[in-house]
Design a protein around this nucleic acid. Structure first.
Lengths: 210, 210
DNA sequence: TTTTAAGTAACTCTTTCGTGGTACCGACGA
DNA sequence: TCGTCGGTACCACGAAAGAGTTACTTAAAA
């Protein structure tokens, strides 16, 4: 309430200059907002945040150096009260989950209309959290799912590379039988009928990238 | 040459409002360019082109109704001399190939710096074609590759869905042996050692989406 | 300390996949 | 008219994958 008369100071982090321009145009058209800086990399974002300590930060997920989530974590260990909005094309429920768990105040899509963006900025600045319904839905869909273990993801990555169980076993220094056990668990957790579908599902959900 | 003194009239087609804003800001900062309209869908693009007949069109690949390539084809059947730049995040060499074959004058990435964008717009307006080196490279890599046939892509999609050969056969009303023959050809053409790798490669190259 | 989760391993058995070869047919172009 | 290409089909064989079961170890959690 006392803030409502103040200008919201915003930091924008995205490696796409075109999109940064768009965000800048939207924000600067709002009388109660000011874009204080823009960063193109995670490290630049951390540094700019330290300098300026903006009220709200818009953070892209994919950055050239570190991931947006890692950059957010770095910022939030220094400034626990930092209010960060993840702004990205949808990457699957796993990324969303990680981002929110790591303290993101909102997770918005780059495809949304500008008026939604400014609205969310105001809400986050006011201390609220916000996740759009379509993202919340995909998040809810997998709430009860067991997450893959690190080893399972390792195996899955090798599977996506077209390796046979025997080859995966060699590379991970385990037996082929163990690989099979991992594959069984992976397919159970993902609800896949075979390794091929497991890849498809894992990619859709953002568990692995191709 | 006679055009060089004139203003370049531009149509921007993209369903992301944020990006449209960015493009608008860039273009309108150029004294020799004018953004005459923006469209968010393929059909809107076709209609706006008819009305305004811009000198250069910036076209996104993914649109809500038809694909950017289909929209371009529709425009170019009416206006064969239309100068269209595909502006997109990289989707794999297959899409690039299709776009250029269908008459795109340039294929640019949304991640590029604004100065490249305006430079390409000027070059395309001057009648030149332009494809950035990284895209040209991935295009060249698969120049000698045989393209998958329509039926092969059908089969591949079903494979990505986790279907067994027998199930695919039933759904496509062919025998399991025929499915195997298609799979053989698919793996040969893609250079994959098994169906799982075939999916991974096909997704990377933009042949199928997950 | 007891329990649980993750990772490892072995064995059997069935199903599916991938490879080889051969062959027919319709459409399209030279 | 003669190839070529795309799509279809069958057969046989060996190589993988997947299902089911049991079991040991380590590390973390209760």
């Amino acid at each position: 309430m006392s803030d409502s008369a103040h200008i919201i100071r915003i930091l924008s982090v995205d490696d796409h200059p075109l999109l940064r321009e768009g965000i800048a145009a939207i924000i600067n058209s709002q009388p109660d907002m000011l874009l204080v800086a823009a960063a193109a990399t995670g490290n630049e974002a951390i540094q700019k945040f330290r300098e300026l300590q903006p009220d709200v930060t818009l953070m892209d997920l994919r950055l050239p150096d570190l991931s947006g989530i890692d950059a957010m974590i770095a910022i939030r260990t220094e400034f626990a009260e930092a209010r960060i909005i993840m702004l990205t094309t949808f990457e699957g429920d796993v990324e969303v989950h990680r981002a929110l768990e790591a303290g993101a105040r909102a997770y918005m899509l780059k495809s949304m209309p500008p008026k939604d963006l400014v609205e969310v900025i105001r809400q986050v600045h006011a201390g609220k959290k916000r996740v759009p319904p379509e993202i919340a839905a995909s998040l809810a869909e997998h709430l009860s799912d067991e997450a893959l273990t690190g080893r399972e993801v390792d195996v899955l990555r090798h599977v996506a590379g077209g390796n046979r169980n025997r080859d995966i076993a060699e590379r991970l220094f385990i037996s082929e039988e163990t690989v099979k056990v991992h594959m069984k668990h992976i397919m159970e957790k993902l609800g896949a009928s075979d390794r091929t579908q497991a890849i498809a599902i894992a990619v859709r959900r953002g568990i692995i990238q191709l």
